[in-house]
């Protein structure tokens, strides 16, 4: 898809996202909120992928953010608003520390370790019963943002999505784009051009993790509770991944398209075949990787000279 067309689509989605609460009912708003949450995660996953690092740890950082937010409210009496910000800072801080250990790893070693770390976070939360509430989780008795009003929560999630889009655009338009693409294409070349690989990977990892944590914070504040199984659910890793792959990686618009498409399909599937949607995600990931490594955009892209080819 050429740039103008994808910009127009993105703009249309933007307008739709902003106007939806004024005419849509509760159910469509709930669906849209869900889709936007996953869309934001898909964008952050793609942002790190631009460096060549494939993370399976989205759910881990999302869950950490969720628990940071809810525990800071329940245990420390932090205002709900601030707890969301705290979730971002906390997840970013965790990413900074583990980044020093795991960003030396590449390819599947990195992927597997991120997956394992997510699982470790879940188990820790699960077992720190007195502080985290263990498997039963934690409930916010009072003080959820907006008193849980659906319309207002919609805006909250939209704001989270806006943060992801803004960060992703920053990654695309700044020197970060050059750093991450060079690292992905050839690390030896990148070094020879003066790129401090570790520093840029750390930046990308911390920023994307902080946003994942932020989204986790928004998630618990929207629902008012957290359990390890709910916030560390594999869905938060698999769905964003499938969405970005489907829409086309290495861009902001790809994950947006993928999320809208897959979000709507999976909503429909959930009604038709409960749990069947998970099978469908799996199938989509396999089919896309096998046949459309550049995602759906590949089907409509006709740019022979690479004016848009940087994201190809």
């Amino acid at each position: 898809m050429n740039r103008t067309a994808s910009r127009i689509f993105a703009l249309l989605f933007g307008v739709l996202a902003v106007t939806l609460p004024f005419f849509a009912g509760d159910y469509p708003l709930q669906v849209a909120r869900n889709i936007m949450m996953y869309m934001a995660l898909a964008i952050t996953w793609d942002m790190l992928l631009r460096s060549g690092q494939i993370s399976f740890g989205i759910a881990g950082l999302f869950g950490i953010g969720a628990y940071a937010a809810i525990l800071s409210v329940v245990r420390a009496g932090m205002p709900a608003w601030f707890s969301i910000l705290f979730a971002a800072i906390f997840a970013g801080g965790v990413a900074f520390v583990i980044g020093f250990l795991i960003l030396r790893l590449r390819a599947m070693y990195f992927s597997i370790v991120t997956l394992a770390l997510g699982e470790i976070f879940r188990i820790i939360i699960h077992n720190l019963h007195d502080f985290t509430g263990g498997p039963e989780g934690v409930v916010i008795q009072k003080g959820v943002v907006f008193g849980g009003k659906a319309n207002s929560l919609y805006w909250l999630v939209l704001a989270g999505l806006a943060v992801a889009v803004a960060a992703s655009t920053w990654f695309e338009k700044s020197k970060i784009h050059f750093a991450l693409t060079a690292i992905r294409n050839n690390e030896v070349s990148a070094k020879s051009s003066g790129i401090d690989i570790f520093r840029w990977l750390l930046l990308a990892f911390v920023v994307t993790s902080a946003i994942q944590g932020l989204l986790g914070g928004i998630f618990v504040q929207s629902y008012g509770f957290a359990t390890p199984d709910a916030v560390f659910s594999a869905d938060f890793t698999l769905l964003p991944l499938a969405m970005a792959l489907l829409g086309g990686v290495y861009s902001t618009t790809g994950p947006i398209f993928g999320a809208v498409l897959l979000g709507l399909v999976s909503e429909w599937l959930k009604l038709k075949i409960p749990y069947g949607h998970l099978v469908v995600y799996g199938i989509i990931i396999v089919v896309v990787i096998l046949f459309m490594p550049q995602g759906l955009r590949q089907l409509v892209r006709r740019t022979p000279h690479g004016a848009d080819g940087r994201s190809a």
């Binding site: 020197k175 693409t181 070349s189 990148a190 020879s192 051009s193 003066g194 080819g309 940087r310």
Partner: peptide, 26 residues
């Protein structure tokens, strides 16, 4: 600075962008 015997172009960057990288980071 150096070039490589086995060429290493950055294939997801255009010609000009390839050349920009050293300017930006070095």
């Amino acid at each position: 600075a150096r070039t490589y015997q086995l060429i290493h172009p950055l294939e997801n960057l255009t010609l000009i962008e390839n050349v920009m990288v050293g300017s930006i980071f070095a």
